Amino acid sequence: TEDEKKIQELLKRANGDVSKAEKLAQSQGNEELARRLREYANK
């Protein structure tokens, strides 16, 4: 999905570090994506 692409892109930029990727999403003002990242990471 589009969200998964965004999540994978963020994870790439954060070198696979979920908490960093989450902070990136939040810094972009994207709380929804940050929440999805957390769920994605907890799979």
Rank of each mutant, 00 (worst) to 15 (best):
T1G: 11
T1N: 12
T1S: 13
T1D: 14
T1L: 13
T1R: 11
T1E: 12
T1I: 12
T1V: 12
T1A: 13
E2L: 12
E2S: 11
E2R: 08
E2I: 13
E2N: 10
E2G: 09
E2K: 07
E2H: 09
E2A: 11
E2P: 10
D3E: 14
D3T: 12
D3M: 15
D3V: 14
D3H: 08
D3Y: 15
E4R: 09
E4M: 13
E4A: 09
E4W: 15
E4Y: 14
E4T: 09
E4P: 04
E4N: 10
K5T: 09
K5F: 11
K5H: 10
K5Q: 12
K5Y: 11
K5E: 11
K5I: 11
K5W: 14
K5C: 15
K5M: 12
K6P: 04
K6I: 14
K6N: 09
K6A: 14
K6L: 15
K6H: 09
K6R: 11
K6E: 15
I7W: 05
I7N: 01
I7R: 01
I7C: 08
I7E: 01
I7S: 02
I7V: 06
I7K: 01
I7M: 12
I7L: 13
I7H: 01
Q8D: 05
Q8N: 07
Q8R: 14
Q8A: 11
Q8L: 14
Q8T: 08
Q8K: 13
Q8C: 15
Q8P: 02
Q8V: 12
Q8G: 05
Q8E: 09
E9C: 15
E9R: 05
E9S: 06
E9T: 05
E9N: 07
E9D: 10
E9F: 04
E9H: 05
E9K: 05
L10V: 04
L10D: 00
L10P: 00
L10W: 08
L10K: 00
L10Y: 12
L10H: 02
L10A: 06
L10T: 02
L11A: 00
L11P: 00
L11T: 00
L11R: 01
L11K: 00
L11N: 00
L11G: 00
L11H: 00
L11C: 12
L11E: 00
L11F: 03
L11W: 02
K12V: 08
K12E: 08
K12A: 13
K12R: 15
K12C: 15
K12Y: 09
K12M: 12
K12I: 10
K12W: 11
R13F: 09
R13M: 14
R13I: 13
R13H: 07
R13S: 08
R13K: 10
R13Q: 14
R13E: 10
R13D: 06
R13A: 13
A14F: 15
A14Y: 10
A14G: 02
A14L: 05
A14M: 08
A14I: 02
A14R: 01
A14E: 02
A14K: 01
A14P: 01
A14H: 05
N15S: 06
N15P: 01
N15M: 07
N15T: 02
N15F: 08
N15D: 09
N15I: 02
G16E: 02
G16V: 01
G16F: 11
G16W: 15
G16I: 02
G16R: 02
G16T: 01
G16D: 03
G16Q: 04
G16P: 00
G16M: 06
D17G: 01
D17C: 10
D17K: 03
D17I: 05
D17A: 02
D17M: 03
D17H: 03
D17R: 03
D17E: 03
D17P: 01
V18L: 09
V18I: 12
V18C: 07
V18T: 05
V18S: 04
V18P: 07
V18D: 01
V18Q: 03
S19V: 12
S19D: 13
S19R: 14
S19Y: 14
S19L: 13
S19G: 11
S19I: 12
S19F: 12
S19N: 12
S19A: 13
S19W: 13
K20M: 13
K20I: 14
K20V: 14
K20A: 13
K20D: 04
K20H: 07
K20F: 11
K20N: 05
A21S: 01
A21H: 00
A21L: 04
A21I: 03
A21V: 02
A21C: 09
A21F: 02
A21E: 01
E22Q: 08
E22G: 04
E22L: 15
E22S: 09
E22V: 15
E22I: 15
E22W: 11
K23D: 05
K23P: 00
K23S: 08
K23R: 11
K23T: 07
K23N: 06
K23M: 11
K23I: 09
K23A: 13
L24Y: 09
L24W: 13
L24V: 04
L24M: 13
L24A: 04
L24S: 03
L24T: 04
L24F: 07
L24R: 03
L24D: 05
L24Q: 04
A25I: 04
A25D: 01
A25T: 01
A25Q: 02
A25Y: 02
A25P: 00
A25F: 02
A25M: 03
A25L: 10
Q26C: 15
Q26A: 10
Q26N: 06
Q26L: 15
Q26Y: 12
Q26W: 12
Q26H: 10
S27P: 01
S27G: 08
S27A: 14
S27N: 09
S27Y: 08
S27L: 14
S27D: 14
S27W: 09
S27C: 15
S27I: 11
Q28I: 10
Q28V: 08
Q28F: 09
Q28G: 06
Q28N: 07
Q28P: 02
Q28W: 12
G29D: 04
G29I: 02
G29L: 03
G29W: 04
G29C: 06
G29P: 02
G29E: 04
G29T: 02
G29S: 03
G29K: 03
G29M: 04
N30K: 06
N30P: 01
N30Q: 10
N30T: 04
N30R: 06
N30W: 15
N30S: 07
N30C: 14
E31C: 14
E31F: 15
E31W: 15
E31L: 13
E31Q: 10
E31K: 07
E31R: 07
E31M: 13
E31S: 10
E31Y: 15
E31P: 11
E31D: 11
E32S: 08
E32F: 07
E32L: 08
E32Q: 08
E32D: 11
E32A: 09
E32W: 12
E32C: 10
E32R: 08
E32Y: 11
E32I: 06
L33R: 00
L33K: 00
L33I: 06
L33H: 01
L33F: 05
L33S: 01
L33A: 04
L33P: 00
L33D: 03
L33E: 02
L33V: 04
A34V: 08
A34M: 07
A34Y: 04
A34R: 04
A34W: 05
A34S: 04
R35K: 12
R35Q: 10
R35M: 11
R35N: 06
R35A: 10
R35G: 05
R35T: 06
R35W: 07
R35Y: 05
R35L: 10
R35S: 06
R35P: 01
R36N: 04
R36I: 12
R36T: 04
R36K: 14
R36P: 00
R36M: 15
R36C: 07
L37Y: 01
L37S: 00
L37I: 15
L37W: 01
L37K: 00
L37H: 00
L37V: 10
L37N: 00
L37T: 01
L37P: 00
L37F: 04
L37R: 01
L37A: 02
R38G: 02
R38H: 08
R38T: 03
R38K: 06
R38E: 02
R38Q: 04
R38I: 05
R38W: 05
R38Y: 03
R38V: 06
E39N: 05
E39R: 05
E39I: 05
E39G: 03
E39A: 08
E39Y: 06
E39H: 05
E39D: 08
E39T: 04
E39Q: 07
E39C: 13
E39K: 04
Y40E: 02
Y40A: 03
Y40T: 02
Y40S: 03
Y40V: 03
Y40K: 03
Y40H: 04
Y40G: 02
A41I: 13
A41W: 14
A41Q: 07
A41H: 08
A41F: 13
A41G: 07
A41C: 14
A41L: 13
A41N: 06
A41E: 04
A41R: 10
N42F: 10
N42G: 10
N42L: 12
N42S: 13
N42Y: 11
N42R: 13
K43W: 11
K43A: 12
K43S: 11
K43E: 09
K43C: 09
K43M: 12
K43I: 10
K43L: 12
K43Y: 11
K43D: 08
